[in-house]
Amino acid sequence: MNQLTLQASLLEVGQIRYTPAGLMALDLGLKHEGEAQEAGKPRKVSMEIKAVAIGEICKRLLALGAGGQARFTGFLSNQRNGRGIVFHVTALAEEPL
């Protein structure tokens, strides 16, 4: 199963574009800072990831705006150029983090 849920801040929102099928698309930058358990010990984690959203969820992301915090859910895929990965955001929960 390829599913990712990430509590993060919306660092940047690209310009609205449209897919060949006419769906709205947004390129995003997300930043996560928190703590995780590794080998039974707490570890501080800070990371940034490129993301993309396609369809109706774009409107919610635009309303959230840069700096907004939420729980993002989706899946990982290769970038178009094959270098690196991109997080495809398919759901958004705007709950306090």
Rank of each mutant, 00 (worst) to 15 (best):
G74C: 09
K50N: 09
A91R: 15
K59T: 15
A91M: 05
G40M: 12
C58K: 03
G67E: 00
E35Q: 10
N2F: 13
R43P: 12
K50P: 03
T19C: 01
A70N: 09
E94F: 01
M1I: 01
G29N: 07
L97A: 14
R71F: 02
K31H: 14
I16C: 06
M47P: 01
Q79W: 02
H88C: 05
G68V: 00
F75M: 15
G84R: 13
G65N: 03
G65F: 08
C58H: 00
M1P: 04
A36C: 09
M1Q: 09
E94T: 14
R80S: 04
G29W: 01
P96K: 11
L23P: 06
V45M: 05
E56V: 02
R17V: 01
I57T: 02
H32W: 13
L28H: 11
Q37F: 11
F75P: 06
G22Q: 12
K44D: 14
V89N: 01
R83T: 07
A25L: 13
G74V: 03
A93W: 04
E33N: 02
V45H: 04
G55K: 03
G74N: 08
L76G: 07
M1S: 11
R60Q: 10
L97V: 08
F72M: 03
P42V: 07
L26Q: 02
K59Q: 15
G65S: 04
Q69Y: 08
Q7K: 06
P96C: 11
P96M: 11
L23M: 11
Y18V: 04
E38L: 10
S46N: 02
A70H: 10
A53C: 13
G55T: 12
V89D: 00
V13E: 05
N2V: 12
A39D: 09
L92H: 10
G65C: 06
R43K: 14
A36N: 01
P20D: 06
G82H: 06
L64A: 07
G67F: 01
Q79N: 15
N81V: 00
Y18H: 05
N78V: 06
L23Y: 15
T73V: 11
A8T: 02
A70D: 09
L64P: 01
T90I: 03
L97C: 10
E56K: 01
F72G: 02
S46A: 07
L62E: 00
L92F: 10
T90K: 15
I57D: 03
T19L: 12
L64Y: 00
I85R: 15
L64T: 03
I54R: 00
A36G: 05
E38S: 12
T5K: 11
G40Y: 10
M24G: 02
D27K: 06
G14K: 09
H88L: 05
T5S: 15
S77Y: 15
I54E: 08
G22E: 15
N81I: 04
L92W: 14
E38I: 05
E33C: 00
I49E: 00
A66M: 09
M1T: 06
L30I: 02
R43I: 13
A39W: 15
I85K: 15
Q3S: 01
E95L: 12
A63Y: 07
Q7F: 03
G14I: 04
T73S: 11
L28S: 03
E33Y: 00
A21K: 11
K59E: 15
I49S: 04
A39H: 14
N78L: 14
A70S: 11
L30G: 01
L23Q: 13
T90E: 07
E95G: 14
G67S: 01
L64K: 12
G74P: 08
V86C: 13
